[in-house]
Design a protein around this nucleic acid. Structure first.
Ligand SMILES: [Mn+2]
Ligand SMILES: [Mn+2]
Ligand SMILES: [Mn+2]
Ligand SMILES: [Mn+2]
Lengths: 219, 219
DNA sequence: GTTTTCATTTTGAGTGTTCAAAATATAGGG
DNA sequence: CCCTATATTTTGAACACTCAAAATGAAAAC
């Protein structure tokens, strides 16, 4: 049975792989996102290779093998179903569920997970708008782009919020920047690194490019 | 933050302390119930002492200090609330919840636990009939005796089932030996190590002393 | 009061994960 | 083509937990 350390590594490597759309993940990104020193990531990569989860190519990075990809997707499923449970059933705030799910994902069994899935009505997205992989390990690919790249006058729908940082999530909710909400880009000032937007039925406000980058939308 | 190993040790030591009504717990009982070698239990005891959870007296055993007792009670609360959730909300069978709770108890945060407690309506007993300690660390003392010691003709109410073994729990449920059920001792054959009983409204059947010992009742 | 038995402790070692700091490789800029 | 900045790897050590097997202590049996 893989340890929770192994599960965290594989889930994170999977996320980076998907985000970059690039099979090979350099060690630096891994050590940074898991908050371990680079040497630790390297030595873990060798262990993970020995156990058959991935391929490790020195000075290039790692690439998931089918087993590693499958386990990564499974942990992602657990994580996102648990987040959904914490918000939908227990009423926690979406800014505090990530850390909770980060622990619970390693303790919940397959059996309990499936019961939870039934109980929740087999949701397809977590509270942040991220797709929940199926039991079979299929996750729908989203072809959404970031709000930061949207032109003036465009109307878009929020797909997901791509940041787990508490304060950003609190800000987003306070501005009604939630998955499913419709927003219009009123103006865009390249030099100011900011744009003015309006969430449907709300007051317009401006948002910096840095923040807008974390909001994924579909046209 | 105490590791899940520490949590398991303290919870188990607390349970043995309560069961034996004896402050000092010999190492043999610890190593057996946690399924580790005696040497492991001894070395762990020294660590736990160094961290202030308990007192270790060589060749006598360990006794919980207030901090250890408090953490033990807290883990017990988590365990039993989770068991209740698994049965009441997710519909798992009471024979399979112990192992699940054994893992989840280390991953659930205080905040999520309290939400769960609310959600469940602040239950006072888990599915096996065991009392759930309060947030403040108070657990109601049960003065129940075992079915095995009950005399012929007596009518009693089942308080709890004191065994986590799957097959025994399945048997118990199949015979309606559940917390709250009223049973009458029809006869008792000392030499046969067995007694005949009837659960209210059901057919009489006989049960060995070994099994009857695991059923706690109140008169 | 010695011997036997049993519980417990000690010893030495191994696993998985981690870090700090030194060593090394590689890619680009000069 | 060399040099330097940056990413990565290596090295050596530590921590928490575990086991097997040998040593020891204390209680029970004789
Ligand atoms: Mn995690
Ligand atoms: Mn999420
Ligand atoms: Mn446990
Ligand atoms: Mn129970």
């Amino acid at each position: 049975m893989p340890s929770s350390t192994v599960e965290n590594y594989l889930k994170q490597i999977l996320l980076i792989t998907l985000e970059r759309e690039e099979k090979v993940v350099p060690m630096g990104l891994i050590s940074e996102s898991l908050d371990v020193t680079p040497g630790t990531a390297t030595s873990m990569a060798k262990n993970l290779e020995k156990e058959g989860w991935l391929c490790y190519e020195p000075r290039r990075g790692v690439s998931l093998k089918p087993a590693g990809r499958k386990l990564g997707l499974n942990i992602l499923r657990r994580h996102r179903l648990l987040e959904t449970f914490l918000v939908e059933t227990l009423g926690l705030d979406w800014s505090e569920i990530h850390e909770e799910a980060e622990e619970l994902e390693h303790a919940i069994s397959e059996k309990v997970l499936e019961r939870l899935d039934d109980f929740l009505g087999r949701p397809r997205h977590d509270p942040h708008g991220h797709p929940i992989p199926t039991k079979g390990g299929v996750m729908q690919r989203k072809k959404s782009r970031s709000l930061v790249g949207c032109k003036e006058g465009l109307s878009v729908v929020i797909e997901s919020i791509d940041d787990q940082e508490r304060n950003f999530l609190k800000f987003a909710r306070s501005r009604h920047l939630l998955p499913g909400k419709k927003i219009k880009i009123l103006s865009r000032e390249e030099e100011a690194d900011a744009m003015e937007i309006r969430v449907e039925g709300k007051m317009p406000f401006s948002i910096g490019f840095e923040a807008a980058r974390k909001i994924l939308v579909s046209v």
